[in-house]
Design a protein around this nucleic acid. Sequence first.
DNA 1: TCTGTTTTGCAATTTACATGCCAAATATTA
DNA 2: TAATATTTGGCATGTAAATTGCAAAACAGA
Lengths: 226, 226
Amino acid sequence: MGERNILIALPENKNRRTISKRLRQDGYSVIYKRSGQDVLDYVQQEIPLIIIMGADLPKVSGWEVCKQLKLDRLTKKIGVVLYADERDDNEVILGLEMGADEFITADESIREIIARINALSRRIIIANNHIKVKDIEIDLDEHRVRKDGAPIDLTYIQFKLLYLLASRREDIFSRQEILERVWGKRVYVTNRTVDVHIKRLREKLGEFQYPSEYIQTIHGKGYRFI
Amino acid sequence: MGERNILIALPENKNRRTISKRLRQDGYSVIYKRSGQDVLDYVQQEIPLIIIMGADLPKVSGWEVCKQLKLDRLTKKIGVVLYADERDDNEVILGLEMGADEFITADESIREIIARINALSRRIIIANNHIKVKDIEIDLDEHRVRKDGAPIDLTYIQFKLLYLLASRREDIFSRQEILERVWGKRVYVTNRTVDVHIKRLREKLGEFQYPSEYIQTIHGKGYRFI
DNA sequence: TCTGTTTTGCAATTTACATGCCAAATATTA
DNA sequence: TAATATTTGGCATGTAAATTGCAAAACAGA
């Protein structure tokens, strides 16, 4: 999810050129792909912010790509914009079911199309820097954590630790992995220290009884946020 | 299903050399076979991740090999890529019916071919690490088991035991075999211990009455997952 | 720079957990 | 029914995790 990359998979025509030009003016970098398969291959390497694609792409249709993207944890955050020549409500419904975020049609003005892409882009950027799990909210930009809306003061390490775990719910992190990711590659800190920080974090999250509601201990493996 | 082994059964030419080289660069190990029969013989010993073969192999055609592979429980997980000099839609349909996973033709760019093989490889690895049986789901990567979507916490041994049984449904495992596969080759653990772990596992799977819905006891032989 | 405060890391202690085995109870087979 | 297998609960043991207090380090404000 580098920065402001947009992947466009549309047949080359005047419309595509205009959209690309306007997006570039707005500070996005634009990449083209031809087929649905190409799109799927590309996202294995790079995660664009948004993909704009025709509903009727060759090889793998836009709907199918959309569905696949939304299935994978790593790619489901990508904003998906489906493009059709004309508006068809059934298609819109189908697309929404597949998890598409926006629909644009050839008969809309470029101005409107760009406005909607920009709006989507903002929504995604905010969503990416903002994690909400149960009653806990984590805001990366503000460096702030809230529980039920009330701010919780975490120290530097506690915040990084929480963010690491919460940004990849369900994933188990070993103590070693946590050390490397929170403290950095070259650490001379004991594994046990992680336990202590987990405890202090749990405390601040308002957990005074065992087992924890948020941070689960996987015996012999590590911790995970649930 | 060792790691990232790819078996190539294609006539030697520039194309084959290029593909092999690129695959090796991507971290696969590549093995060659000549005829369809050779391929069938080989998979009795080793299970590669993917087989790339010409549709018109000598002795046994690629289609025939494909069909045979997909019939056998042990080999049907192998990804099959059929290669033809030119695209023929009828052949593609035939191949799909036979269970082939991908088709590549000489006129595609190497880059695209490699991308599609990589994508296939990922799909297979994911599918192999995820078992779904009845209402039980087992995810090897996440070290997580779910029943009706609700997570079940298993210990290390319990998880390995369940995974072993579930990965080969219907197969009966003797206690000795279970010991070797779950505890490792050199164990000094009683056979009876297996029973105890089976019991604990059944308990966690929510089975409090006899006989078990998931893990069947074969008197005098062992256990199997049904 | 000094001083008080907070944060952090560690070691010692306590607690929880997973595992293996036994023995009694129960089931299966012949 | 006798002989054999399996299930089950309990218990001991070793190991992993949680907790706690303390001291060093980092930090903030005067």
